[in-house]
């Protein structure tokens, strides 16, 4: 099938939001390097960070092949308002319970998205998503183990996980902010759309939450954290970018 200009525009929008989510959550995960509550978790978050940043690079490479700038330029020279990440991923790491719950909610969403996109008619994206799917398996496995163990641990661990869930769940809905391209991308069999992702996600994370003996949070305003996809971010993103690009900015032309 021939892609129209509108499809290409929609695809770029989709690729930017995916890659930006991955880069920013990857950076946040890396903030646990050397700081994890136990050594294994330090390594887990560091490894997941490396996977996410590798995956973001693969998607920035596809964008580059579609005529966008070099991955480094795209990653290191944009301001917050040009980023399309969701407001969930830019939140500070907080305490370990928040980071863990965010990782659980985020990785389920990505696993579903990658699974869907493995069947996309847009081959370059389908190929990398098939690859990411296998990698993600270990992320969701890790999340499942810890959510269950902490929910079944003691009163404090259970309360902490539930509180973190109450905070992160409404934010996670921002991952599925509808896009103006959803309908056309879906009709063209490029991407089945945010609404479909969200439906599957609610069912899958809901199962884990209930099996762990936790409660699914009630969300009064599902759109509270929308806006990230069009560059509207919280006050947390720009300081993250300043830190992430600090070395690059010293000499943007340096050869590494």
């Amino acid at each position: 099938m021939e892609l129209t200009e509108r499809h290409v525009e929609g695809l770029k929008h989709l690729l930017y939001k995916m890659a930006d989510d991955l880069l920013i959550i990857g950076h946040r995960n890396s903030e646990w390097t050397g700081m994890g509550p136990i050594l294994e978790e330090d390594i887990a978050f560091s490894s997941m960070a490396q996977d996410k940043i590798g995956q973001s690079l693969a998607i920035y490479n596809i964008l580059h092949e579609m005529g966008e700038q070099e991955p480094d330029t795209v990653a290191f020279t944009r301001n917050a308002s040009s980023f399309h990440c969701s407001q969930l991923v830019e939140q500070p790491i907080g305490e370990y319970d928040f980071s863990l719950v965010r990782h659980f909610l985020y990785d389920y969403a990505d696993a579903i998205r990658f699974d869907m996109l493995s069947n996309s008619i847009f081959e370059p994206l389908a190929m990398v998503c098939k690859k990411f799917r296998g990698e993600l398996k270990y992320h969701t496995m890790h999340a499942n183990i810890w959510i269950k163990d902490l929910a079944e641990g003691n009163e404090e661990s259970k309360t902490r996980i539930q509180n973190a869930l109450n905070k992160a769940y409404p934010m996670a809905l921002s991952l599925f902010e509808p896009s103006e391209f959803d309908k056309e991308l879906s009709e063209a069999e490029i991407f089945s759309g945010e609404a479909k992702c969200r439906t599957i996600w609610e069912k899958e994370v809901g199962t884990v939450i209930l099996e762990a003996g936790l409660e699914i949070p009630q969300v009064s305003d599902p759109e509270e954290y929308y806006g990230g996809r069009s560059g509207k971010h919280t006050e947390h993103l720009q300081p993250l970018l300043d830190e992430m690009t600090e070395v690059f900015q010293i000499d943007p032309t340096a050869d590494w």
């Binding site: 294994e40 390594i43 887990a44 560091s46 490894s47 997941m48 490396q50 996977d51 270990y138 496995m141 890790h142």
Partner: peptide, 13 residues
């Protein structure tokens, strides 16, 4: 298995 993550991305402990 202690953790599905290890010293490199391809290893578990």
């Amino acid at each position: 298995m202690q953790t599905p993550f290890g010293p490199t991305l391809c290893r578990s402990m």
